Simulated assay, not measured.
Amino acid sequence: MNDQTTAHREELLAVFDREMREQARPDGPGVRVERTDGVVRQVGGPHDWNAVIWSSPDLDAARADAAIAAQVTHWTELGYDEFEWKLYAHDRPADLGARLLAAGFVPEEPETLLVAPVADQPMTVRLPEGVRLRTVRDEADVDLMVRAHEQAFGKDGSRLRRQVLAQLREDPDHFFGVLAMAGDDPVSSARMELYPGTGFAGLWGGGTVEEWRGKGVYRALIAFRAGIAAERGYRYLQVDATEDSRPILQRLGFTVLGTTTPYVYRPAS
């Protein structure tokens, strides 16, 4: 990695940290962002995504342990089944992950954080024969999205269903859902969240059922969402990618900024 590439990556990471983490806004209806104890956290209802999304880069060992303890106390007192500390590889102190582990958090699979300028993305949608796109507009569409998600990822889509229905109902201007349909069957689904006050649009989902992978459906969904982001004046696309998606995104010009790992705390029952 040459000096120019390194500088570009560091600049993108600094903008992301500032706009999407330190200055975070609520990511949906019914949630709020709080700043306390050297962290920024999102707090909603028990079925929302509750998480620490930023921690101060000047946390030392003692302050980190105190911040961890304070967050455990906060969510335990709320009576929630779980909450997440969203740890990024560059967060400090360097052993923050080990400190979370020692406090009872359980790490899940890491994902790769990638960012790309919207203007650099291809926006022509090319779909394989027999596949069409359908935007998510109502409850029936949400059910199709959940069906595609569950088939693609093998995970329960109950939380996704609640989240998308709430966004369609209460914040439709900053949410876009799209389905790839083969006949009456959803073969892929994806979402985009626009974050007002930032330059970022977040790409989420993008799961394709196994028999339709490798045919360009995932790339088509990115191009479709990139076009919407460009129309709305957003500068960057951001993705937390699995290892299946990362190589495709890199070929499309996304820059790897690091990794992010969900550390999940579940109070003892």
Rank of each mutant, 00 (worst) to 15 (best):
F176G: 03
G177R: 07
V178N: 12
L179Y: 03
L179M: 05
A180R: 07
A180W: 06
A180Y: 04
M181G: 15
A182S: 09
A182V: 05
G183A: 03
D185S: 12
D185Y: 08
P186S: 11
V187S: 13
V187I: 15
S188T: 02
S189P: 09
S189W: 10
M192C: 00
M192E: 01
M192A: 00
M192P: 01
E193D: 15
E193R: 13
E193V: 15
L194E: 05
L194P: 06
P196C: 04
G197Q: 03
G197T: 05
G197P: 02
G197S: 03
G199F: 13
G199Q: 12
F200A: 04
A201F: 05
G205L: 02
G206E: 10
G207D: 14
V209Y: 08
V209I: 11
R213H: 06
K215Q: 03
G216A: 15
V217T: 04
Y218S: 12
Y218D: 11
R219V: 03
R219Q: 04
A220K: 10
I222F: 00
A223K: 06
R225A: 08
A226G: 10
A229S: 14
E231V: 04
E231I: 06
G233W: 05
Y234F: 02
Y234T: 00
R235N: 12
L237H: 07
L237G: 08
Q238V: 14
Q238S: 12
D240I: 11
D240K: 06
D240A: 14
D240M: 13
T242K: 00
E243V: 09
E243P: 07
E243M: 09
E243K: 07
D244G: 12
D244H: 12
D244T: 14
S245I: 09
S245A: 13
R246Y: 04
I248Y: 01
I248G: 07
R251D: 01
G253H: 07
